[in-house]
Design a protein around this nucleic acid. Structure first.
Lengths: 229, 229
DNA sequence: TCCAATAAGTGTAAATTTTACAATTATATA
DNA sequence: TATATAATTGTAAAATTTACACTTATTGGA
């Protein structure tokens, strides 16, 4: 096989920007950072960075997410490559947006402080730099269409969670109320939930049973798809 | 707003590669080109090219599709950005894959010849350069998951088509037989088909009625989603 | 012109899933 | 012990999906 050396005249800067969603038990939130660097210092934005010569886009996203959260093994998917010519006033920069889900409790206050980071409810997301609001909107649409056909929650919920918490998550994703009888019937019929003999008493006197995900069935349905909506 | 000039040390070449699907009435086919240029001259590949400094990725895809097909207004979606470090042995090149659907009859023999292009049934797709087989596979998965939740056919079928042709398309996408009574009931219930008072006699003595898409309802359902599977 | 062949077009009953809807239960605290 | 709170549970009607086979329109050949 012949190796050619491509001309470099139209090489471009390529960034990765991460939309990080977390769930606090009742609301879906996005992790944003207040920039203490140029360009657009002082404004809110997604966490991002340039892709290096010697790393894949996925690796860059992992690196950037790790820098922001301190976490490894974050659930992450490539969302879309945003490539309008003038999306970044500082120069021609492509951005590959990544969609990540984390358990909000895994995120340390220390790192929040270090990065000027803040969790914003989706309703309250401020104006962001560049096309980051567009990315945010695409990420919200993505999780909605994903949740319609795949189980979600594994990455967003703590290991032990209750049915009301899981329902709150779906209600937060779709920003609408659901019937709890129908919801539990539906979710239990998927065989991805294992009921524990232990209750969470934090939000009611009666207490709600904890569940964990059946990891094997969850991953299978994540691949095969379900029909949630 | 302050304009910064980003360092250029990690700028990358970014290509666009197009997976073009067409439907010949019974089979789903992909448009491939036999390379008459380096690297990998003589091998089959997707049609692609580099993104220029002054064009968006979408514009590059339109340009490349137009060069290959002579067509404007091709149905097209960004699929995924492939960015492994060593995906192209000729150098570090990212590739944004685009997924396009065209009416196979719109494609001229002249252009087929000019570009060394050939329609391949999906079952017979040969070994392609780089990660193009991976892209092809992703495109097939994409059209399958898309067809499960959205109407498809507008871009792939001629303006007038018959119900058996539409069913053939769905059967080709899913590579499986469907019941024609259930299929027609389902599709007709979507209110996206307008029956013409005219028959296609090409494939039967009785003839099959032509239909056209109700463009408004089609576009609405394309946006809202349907539940096909 | 009549018959045979071909593919198009059509209906129904059973099974499953979805939807709408409200009473009971467990527990903590007053 | 009474009360308040949120969790848990069932059922009937409606809608959708599935499985399944005969009739129809037309052409070309006997």
């Amino acid at each position: 096989m012949s190796i050619v050396h491509y001309e470099k005249y139209d090489s471009l800067l390529v960034a990765v920007d991460c939309i990080v969603f977390g769930f606090d038990g009742s609301e879906l939130k996005a992790l944003l950072i207040k920039r203490d660097f140029e360009p657009q210092i002082g404004k809110w934005s997604l966490m991002g960075g340039f892709i290096h010569q010697d790393e894949s886009a996925d690796d860059a996203a992992v690196r950037i997410l790790n820098r922001l959260t301190g976490l490894d093994n974050i659930y992450m998917e490539q969302l879309h490559c945003f490539a309008d010519v003038n999306r970044d006033p500082g120069g021609r920069v492509l951005s590959i947006a990544y969609f990540a889900l984390i358990n909000i409790n895994d995120y340390s206050q220390q790192l929040m402080f270090t990065h000027n980071a803040q969790w914003y409810s989706l309703k309250d997301v401020p104006e962001l730099i560049f096309d980051h609001n567009t990315m945010m909107k695409a990420a919200l649409e993505h999780i909605r269409s994903k949740a319609a056909n795949h189980p979600v929650g594994f990455a967003l919920l703590p290991a032990k969670f209750t049915l009301p918490q899981l329902q709150n998550l779906y209600e937060a994703i779709y920003d609408s109320k659901m019937d709890k009888r129908n919801f539990s019937r539906k979710l239990l019929s998927l065989n991805i939930l294992i009921k524990l003999n232990e209750k969470d008493k934090a939000s009611s006197k009666k207490g709600a049973f904890y569940y964990i995900f059946d990891e094997e069935n969850y991953k299978r349905l994540e691949h095969e798809g379900i029909k949630f909506i």
